[in-house]
Write a protein that binds this DNA or RNA. Structure first.
Length: 680
DNA sequence: TGCTGTATCTTTTTT
DNA sequence: AGATACAGCA
């Protein structure tokens, strides 16, 4: 009956993956090969065959991805599919740890530190150990946390991480270890967990409590892990522990799309998977359903240059399609104008804005474009880059809520206290010590000096009744915080607006704990908050870092700043492994496109760094990933065959790089165009 | 002593 | 644009 539908909608390899129910499976899925479709159908298939949805655990990279899959599975079958358990490793860990806090030696109201909180805590510990005064070249708190985090995520010794990736810090090995131990102790005492701790605690919980492991493994009888190439050792270990009772685990991934090694991910998890689970069946998906042949030719040529990869042979049955186009723009703002022009033109031709995306390596690459789009009233949502909750004033208010939720949260206390004028790190510490020791004398002494302090404490006393209405709680704290905000920031008006938005978001939550957890683990995107929407609506252009574009696809894709030093990033040029990751990143970016692919670069680099380095005008080079292996020539020469007469006769969209034709000439060509049409 | 203002770098990517 | 280091001020 239903099986017929599955046959019709899936190719043989996909069908096999969907219908393989028991035992370990590894699905190697090339870009655009219908990986999501397999997962969605598999969920439906399992439920249809009598599996209780709650016994299926779907671990994905973002909660958005999980929700999208469950929504699609629901349309395929029925509402039962939405009861499937799922989320990110971190949110799943949070869920389990709150429930079984006692087993893990935690109090269930633990706070989650985001990266900057964690950095603050490291800074505190470092200051306490007075290691910062010894030497000027001592690593910053940011770098220290990075080293510590990498060693946990890779399950590697700190020394090894230092030796391999941070040789410049090797001489501080002993001090960094001291800071790490101090940091761990500090967090444990104050019921604080950073991102890595969520994983560590879950791993320890599962390894050390056999009864609990059995219980959980029996509860989650079917485990699926998406984007397995971007899991780290710790996450791989957790997956295996969860599957220990039954071995029903399917992991899906593509080694060519591994782009998270900077946080400890290792695509060798894919190779090692069959070693851990004997009898693993491997299924390879090679047919591409996403892109046209010319785009596929380009992406295949890009990944062919990779130093290390599993051979895959992606093919499509689609014929025809436009050739990818490379545009060398005079500068950043010309690039923005080109992209905006082209987007408007495509929209006139009937392409919906939601089917277009602009991708880039780092958050600031889109700054100029954002201004341009705004001035032309093109609605967009930006993913990646700085998050809404990372703004100082939002963090300030959240720190009050976190104290209300977990009074031991000293990181938040430090932040909240230092907002009061006249209180810096030292006094804040003094207050906290006086409170901890219940030293009435010392307390009164300090309290007498600052009436703000009394107000703050009174507020926390009042709070207890309303603890589970986050929105009301914020409004209450806002009365106290508003005057402080005005002193602290000149642009307090804009920031007050943001705080209204925060109240709005909080209004969607009944429980304070859930609200705070979400703000730490699944923070809303800035652009969505500012437009007052929960989701992007139907006709919105997408701007995204390549990392945040993972797993998504659009009919038209623009990649901006495809220049050497930007993509690949100048920070990765020295290290061969990092450079390979940049290549995969570029691959991921290009493979997002279904029909049209545009690559742009500004010819003049006005970024502060390059200005500083040279003092003069810096001309960019085409990204080396296009130069190498004739990638650029290959996809261009096909196009060039129909355009021997040169560039003059072409509309803008036909201006492309030709073999051997380099920046200087393009600069002239583009300059002409932009001066005439756009009033340069 | 500790806080605040000013100068000076430094800016990848994310849970 | 934000964090950090340093020097002067209460």
């Amino acid at each position: 009956m239903q099986n017929k539908d599955y046959h019709a909608q899936l190719n043989p390899a996909q069908l096999k993956a969907v219908q393989s129910i028991s035992g370990p499976h590894l699905v190697i899925a090339g870009a655009g090969s219908g990986k999501t479709r397999v997962l969605v159908h598999r969920v439906a298939y399992l439920v249809e065959h009598g599996v209780n949805p709650e016994e299926i655990l779907l671990l994905t990279f973002t909660r958005r991805a999980a929700e999208e899959m469950l929504r699609r599975a629901s349309t395929l079958l029925d509402k039962r599919c939405s009861r499937v358990s799922g989320g990110t490793f971190h949110s799943f860990a949070n869920f389990i740890l709150r429930k079984y806090a006692a087993f893990a030696g935690l109090s269930s109201n633990f706070s989650i530190l985001d990266q900057s909180d964690a950095e603050d805590a490291v800074g505190l510990v470092r200051a306490k150990l007075t290691l910062n005064k010894t030497d000027k070249r001592f690593p910053r708190k940011h770098a220290i946390l990075e080293v510590i985090s990498k060693s946990t995520n890779k399950s590697a010794l700190l020394e090894d991480v230092l030796q391999q990736e941070y040789p410049q810090f090797q001489e501080f090995s002993a001090q960094i270890k001291k800071i790490r131990d101090g940091y761990n102790e500090y967090k444990r005492k104050k019921s604080l967990l950073d991102y890595d701790d969520l994983l560590i605690y879950l791993q320890v919980l599962l390894s050390q409590h056999a009864d609990l492991r059995k219980k959980l493994s029996s509860r989650y009888k079917y485990i699926m892990v998406d984007e397995y190439q971007d899991t780290n050792r710790l996450q791989a270990h957790i997956s295996c522990l969860l599957a220990s009772e039954h071995g029903n685990i399917m992991v899906v991934g593509d080694d060519a799309q591994s782009i998270y090694s900077f946080r400890g991910a290792n695509f060798r998890n894919i190779i090692d998977f069959p070693k851990i689970f004997k009898g693993t069946k491997i299924i390879t998906l090679e047919e591409n359903y996403r892109s046209t042949q010319p785009i596929l030719d380009l992406t295949n040529a890009v990944i062919r240059q990779a130093k290390e990869k599993f051979e895959k042979n992606l093919f499509t049955r689609k014929t025809g399609g436009e050739l990818p186009i490379f545009i060398d723009c005079p500068d950043d703002s010309a690039q923005s104008k080109f992209v905006a022009d082209k987007i408007l033109e495509l929209r006139e031709d009937g392409v919906n804005l939601k089917d277009m995306a602009v991708l880039f390596r780092s958050g600031w690459h889109s700054n100029d474009l954002e201004v341009e789009l705004a001035s032309r009233n093109i609605p967009f949502v930006k993913y990646g880059g700085l998050k809404f909750v990372e703004a100082a004033h939002i963090k300030d208010v959240l720190s009050y809520l976190r104290i209300a939720h977990n009074p031991a949260d000293q990181v938040s206390w430090m932040r909240a206290l230092q907002l009061i004028p006249g209180i810096g790190p030292k006094t804040a510490n003094l207050i906290l010590e006086a409170m901890a020791e219940k030293n009435k004398n010392a307390q009164e002494k300090i309290f007498k000096k600052k009436e703000e302090l009394v107000k703050l404490f009174d507020l926390f006393d009042q709070v207890k009744a309303d603890i589970d209405k986050p929105a009301a709680l914020i409004e209450m704290f806002l009365k106290y915080y508003q005057p402080l905000l005005k002193i602290k920031y000149d642009d307090f008006h804009k920031r007050l607006n943001d705080l209204d938005s925060l109240i709005n978001i909080a209004g969607r939550y009944k429980l304070l704990e859930q609200f705070l957890t979400d703000m730490a683990l699944e923070p809303p995107e800035r652009a969505l908050v500012e437009s007052g929407r929960a989701d992007k609506d139907d006709s919105t252009l997408t701007l995204s870092t390549i990392h945040s574009a993972k797993g998504l696809e659009w009919s038209t894709v623009f990649i901006i700043y495809a220049a050497d030093g930007h993509l690949p990033s100048y920070l990765s040029l020295e290290n061969p492994d990092q450079l390979e990751e940049e290549r995969r990143l570029f691959y991921v970016a290009c493979t997002r496109a279904k029909m049209n692919l545009f690559l742009c670069k500004p010819n003049i680099d006005r970024s502060p760094r390059s200005q500083l380095a040279s003092g003069g005008t810096v001309f960019t080079q085409v990204s080396r990933f296009l130069e190498q292996g004739g990638v650029l020539d290959k996809f261009i020469s096909t196009q060039a065959s129909g355009s021997e007469d040169g560039i003059g006769q072409f509309e803008l969209e036909d201006i492309i790089g030709q073999p051997g034709k380099r920046s200087k000439e393009f600069f002239e060509d583009m300059k002409d165009y932009f001066s005439e049409e756009n009033g340069f």
